[in-house]
Design a binder for these strands. Structure first.
Lengths: 206, 206, 206, 206
DNA sequence: TGCTAAGCGAGACGGTACGTCTTGTCTTCCG
DNA sequence: CGGAAGACAAGACGTACCGTCTCGCTTAGCA
C-alpha cells in the first residue's frame, strides 16, 4: 500500500516551531496587546500567510504555544484523601500561576476569549474544560470514597476552585499561596471537628 | 463672594450624556470588540476629540456609562443573620448578572482590564474594590455578631464569592441562579444542623 | 541570465495611474488647497498607505502627474537666430502657461516649494532646473553664433526670462502673450535696425 | 459735535502688538508652515477669538506685522538719471531681501497668496502693487526726462525687475547682489557707450 | 450709579485631515 | 503546492488645528 500523504509540499514543521517560539518571545517582550501577526511573522522569518493559513488568530497561536505546559501541571494521583488530593491540585495550580509569564498568558487568553466568541469556545474546550475534567477525577474519587457528600455538588466545587484561582489572577494582584490553599480547603472540605474550630486543622500535619 | 468657576466654556452635559448613551447602544448593537471611538462620536453627534478629552479609552466610557447601575445593586441591609445577608447579596448579584447586556459589559470590561494595565487599575479601584467593600460590610457584621469565625477570613470569602460569580460569567455559559446561591451559602456559612440538610433555612430542597 | 526582480508582489501600475489621474481631477475640481491625500485615495479606490508608500506628499503626486506635459513644451530647435529661438521658447512658454489648469498647477507647486523645503529641492531639480537647461541650449548656441555677447550672462538671461514668466503667473492676472514676448525679446536681444525698434538704436551691435 | 466712537470696550492695542510680535517670533522659530493661530494666541497670551476677530488668516497677521518694514525700503528720490535711480531701487531691494528672515516671510506670503485667492488679492493690493507704484515713479520720471523710450513700456520693466527679484527669492538660492543689479541695469538701461563698459557709470569693473 | 455694548482670556465644542498602524488578502517567485 | 516577500484595500487609531461657541470679566459711553 502506498503512502496516504496528501499531494503538494508538506507543512513545514520548522516554520510552525519558529512561529510558536516567536509568539511566546514577543508576548513576553511587548505584551499581548502589543503582539501583532506581522511581528510574529517577522520574528519567525516567515510569511504572514503561513500564519493565517494555519491559525485563526494570534490567540490561537499562543494557545497552541502554551498548551504543552498547561497539560503538564495537572496532578490527579490518589493521595489517600480528598483533602490531600485537593491540596496537591491547588498547590500545582498556584505554582503554575506563580510564573508571571504564564499568568500573563492566561490573562490574555481569557481576555481574548471574552472579545472573540469563537476563540472563547476553542479556549473553553481545549483548556478550561480539560482543567475541570482533571478536578472531576478528584471529586469523583472523593465521592466514591465518602469524603464528599451530596452538597456542594462537584460542579460547584469546580466553580469555587477555578473561580477563586481565576479571580486572583484577573482581578487582584495578590499571589496564590499556601495560606490561600489552606483557606480554600477549610471551606471545601471542612474537617470533622466541632464547629467553632474552623481553620484549625491547617496546623495539622498533612 | 465671587464665583469660583474656572474660565472658559463649561463642559457640555448634553454631549456627555449623548456619548454615554451612544456607547451603551453601540456596545449592545455591535459588541465591545466592534465598538470604536469614531463610531461613538458619530452616533453621539460629537467630535472625536470631545471623547478623547474626557475619557482615556472606550472602556472608560463604558465604565462610566454602566457605573450608575453598578452602584444600584449592592444591598447591605442587615437582615438579621449572615446567611440571610449573604443570600440577599448573592441574589442581587445574579439578578444583575442575569441581564445579558450587563453581563456582556462586565465581560468586556474585565477583558479590557487584562489588556490595558492602566484601565485595569481604574477598573479595580472604581468597580471591583467597591464591590468587595460592600461584601465586607456583611462579613464584618457577621464577625461582630459571631456568625462568622476566624477562618476563612473575610478576604477569602470575598475571593470565593466574587471568584465564583466572575468565573461563571467569564468561563461558562451556565447562568447564576438560586441553586448556585444555595450551594455557595452552604459552603461559606454551613448551618449547624447535621450534614444532609444543606441549603438550609429557606426549606426548598431540590 | 536570471531575473533581477525583487521578491514580493510588484507595484501595481494600475494603482499608480489611478492615483495620478485622481490627483489631477481633484486638483481641478477642488483646487490644490482643497486637495487631500484621503480624497485622492478615495477617488482612486486605493488605500492611503499606497500613496504614502510611494510619494512623500501630495505635491509630489502632482509633480509626477504633471511631469509628462512639462517635458513636452521645451522647443530648442535651431531656428537660425537667437531672436527666433528665443521667440519660439517664449511662445511655447506662454502657450503652456495659458492653460489655466496648468498655470494653477504650477502656482500650487511653486507655493508648496516655499512651504516645504524638501519638496522645494525636488521641484527645483526635477522641474525648474530642467527648464533652465533648455534655455541654456539656446543661449549657448547664440553665444557660439555670436548673437549674444558676454553681458548679460546666460544665467541673468534665464533669471529674467523665467522670473518674468513666473511673476506674471504668481503675482498678476495678466496673461502672457505675443506683445509680452516682443517686449522681452526687445530687451534681451535688441536688434540693430531702426524703426519701431525702440531701445535698438543706441545698441551698437555687440 | 458728538463723538464717533462706537459703544463697547475699545480694541486693545496691547493685544494687537502682542499678537503681531508673537507671530513674527514664531514664524522665525517654527517656520510659516509650522505657524498656527493657536500657537500665536498662546504665545501672545490672547484668546484665539481675538485673532479671528481682527485678521482673516495667519498670513494677514504676518502681512501686517511685516508691513512697516516693507514701506521703509522704497527709495524714489531723484538721483539725476534713470540708471542711478534704478540702481538705488535695486540695491534697496536686495538689501531687504538679503535678510533671510524677511526673505522667508516674503516667500511664505507669496506662497499663501497662491493657495488662498482672497489673501492673494489683499497681498497684491497692499504689497505687490505698492512696490510697482514705487518703481513707476522712477520710470515715469525717466520717461519725462527722456532716459526711457517707448519700448519697453514701464509695465514690462516692472515685470522684469520684480520678476527677477521674486524668481531669485522663490526659485533659487542665489543671493541678490551688486553684480545682479549691474546686469539688470545693463539690460534695462543700456548705456550709449561702446561695449566693453558694461555696468557703466560706477566704474567698478570686475 | 447703573445700563448697554463690545472686546477680552479661556477653553470646550463639532469637525477634518493628518500620518501611522494592523488586518487579512493578493500576487509574485523560489524550492 | 507551500512558503517568503511584500504590495494592496480598508479603516481605526490618536493628534493637531481649524473656526465657532459660550462663559464671566473688563472697559468704555450713555442715561
Amino acid at each position: 500500500m502506498t503512502s496516504t500523504r496528501s499531494p503538494g509540499r508538506p507543512r513545514s514543521e520548522a516554520s510552525r516551531q519558529a512561529i510558536l517560539a516567536a509568539a511566546m518571545e514577543l508576548a513576553v517582550e511587548v505584551g499581548y496587546a502589543g503582539l501583532t501577526i506581522e511581528g510574529i511573522a517577522a520574528r519567525a522569518g516567515v510569511g504572514k500567510q503561513t500564519i493565517y493559513r494555519w491559525w485563526p488568530s494570534k490567540a490561537d497561536v499562543l494557545l497552541e504555544a502554551g498548551a504543552v505546559k498547561a497539560d503538564m501541571y495537572v496532578p490527579v494521583d490518589d493521595l489517600g484523601s480528598y483533602r490531600a488530593d485537593l491540596r496537591a491540585f491547588l498547590r500545582a495550580s498556584y505554582v503554575v500561576a506563580g510564573h508571571p509569564q504564564f499568568a500573563d498568558l492566561l490573562r490574555a487568553l481569557m481576555a481574548e476569549a471574552q472579545l472573540d466568541a469563537e476563540f472563547g469556545e476553542r479556549f473553553r474546550v481545549s483548556f478550561l474544560e480539560r482543567r475541570r475534567d482533571a478536578l472531576a477525577v478528584i471529586t469523583q474519587r472523593a465521592r466514591e470514597r465518602g469524603d464528599l457528600t451530596a452538597r456542594p455538588d462537584p460542579a460547584t466545587v469546580a466553580d469555587i476552585v477555578f473561580g477563586t484561582i481565576w479571580y486572583r489572577i484577573l482581578a487582584t494582584t495578590r499571589p496564590l499561596d499556601e495560606a490561600w490553599a489552606d483557606d480554600l480547603i477549610g471551606v471545601l472540605a471542612p474537617d470533622a471537628e466541632p464547629a467553632g474550630a474552623p481553620g484549625g486543622e491547617h496546623g495539622a500535619p498533612r
